[in-house]
């Protein structure tokens, strides 16, 4: 197989509140022989909030990010569900509306850039599943996670709206019964835990304005995983990770029971199975201690 190469849109959290996500992404890519060219010019995607204020500005900024991936002639890979949503949504809208695309390109031309629509945008989870392949990953596992019950937490913006995700990813996901993360757990040798909240919302985007709703959703998710005997949770989204990892106290308060579970980034789980060290995966950066390694 030809070496896989992508343009990496890190998003903002990987460089700030989830440094372990950046470390584990690079460690796993290295093990798998995937080359990631970091888009250091990229801006914030607007995190599904900027468009509430200024939709056109959000489109222009996201189109600029994609334009840099296009300059490299590479597929863009994201490592955050919300970056994935905003970027893929921008791409969808521009690729299906010539007039809008022309308006955006008029702005991008001011800085010598053009959005062409030539680079697909995918999440690293789907790059591993669709492009690298789980069979190949399985063969590379050196430390199977066989003693662990692992609860997948999918994160809304990788599975909804399904219309967008189906157009973006080869392995079309049923948002009511997603399988990608379960398949990844199994490929790493772990036992996948089924529970009602695995495809539900973590509450992240309403944390500031609606703290009770946000904390209750986080609490329900952790409680659902705990009640189904999960040893830990795994997520492809750093925003879900922030909620589940750092907000267990608020979550417990909101649902009236103590809940807490270690939560790994999808990359950290794969990294463990591939024999990366805890230091390489940044496990010390978790608020809820990862005590099983």
């Amino acid at each position: 197989m030809e070496k896989l190469k992508y343009a990496l849109f890190t998003g903002c959290t990987a460089k700030q509140s989830t440094p372990e996500q950046m470390m584990s992404t690079m460690a796993v890519a290295n093990k798998l022989g995937i080359e990631l060219v970091e888009l250091t010019e990229a801006s914030c995607c607007g995190a599904s909030h900027l468009q509430d204020y200024d939709d056109f500005l959000s489109l222009v900024l996201n189109a600029r990010n994609i334009a840099y991936a296009e300059k490299h002639g590479l597929t863009m890979v994201t490592i955050c569900n919300t970056c994935q949503l905003n970027t893929a949504m921008t791409k969808h809208r521009l690729d299906n509306n010539e007039e809008l695309k022309a308006k955006v390109n008029e702005k991008l031309a001011e800085v010598g850039l053009e959005y062409k629509g030539t680079s697909p945008v995918t999440h690293f989870l789907y790059a591993i599943i669709d492009d690298f392949g789980l069979d190949k990953l399985k063969e590379m596992v050196v430390t199977p996670l066989s003693q662990f019950n692992i609860a997948p937490f999918y994160g809304c913006h990788n599975i909804r709206p399904s219309e967008l995700q189906n157009e973006t990813h080869k392995s079309a996901e049923n948002p009511y019964n997603p399988t990608s993360l379960d398949d990844l757990i199994i490929a790493c040798g772990g036992m996948n835990v089924d529970y009602d909240e695995k495809n539900k919302c973590c509450g992240f985007h309403a944390e500031l304005q609606s703290p009770h709703t946000a904390a209750a959703l986080t609490g329900n998710a952790i409680a659902g995983a705990m009640d189904n005997n999960a040893d830990w949770m795994v997520t492809p989204c750093p925003l879900c990770h922030l909620k589940l990892d750092t907000q267990a106290d608020h979550a417990s308060e909101a649902i009236g029971r103590e809940v807490e579970l270690p939560v790994l980034h999808m990359q950290q789980m794969v990294g463990l199975a591939l024999g990366c060290t805890p230091a390489e995966l940044g496990l010390k950066h978790h608020v809820t201690k990862v005590d099983f390694v």
Binding site: C12, S17, A42, S43, C44, H49, L50, L57, Q209
Partner: peptide, 22 residues
């Protein structure tokens, strides 16, 4: 209010740093 400033705040951050200042 907090929700409105949260949406507007992204622009303020982006114009200053490109990326977000969390």
């Amino acid at each position: 209010n907090v929700a409105v400033r949260h949406a507007v705040g992204f622009k303020k951050s982006i114009v200053k740093n490109g990326v977000l200042d969390e």
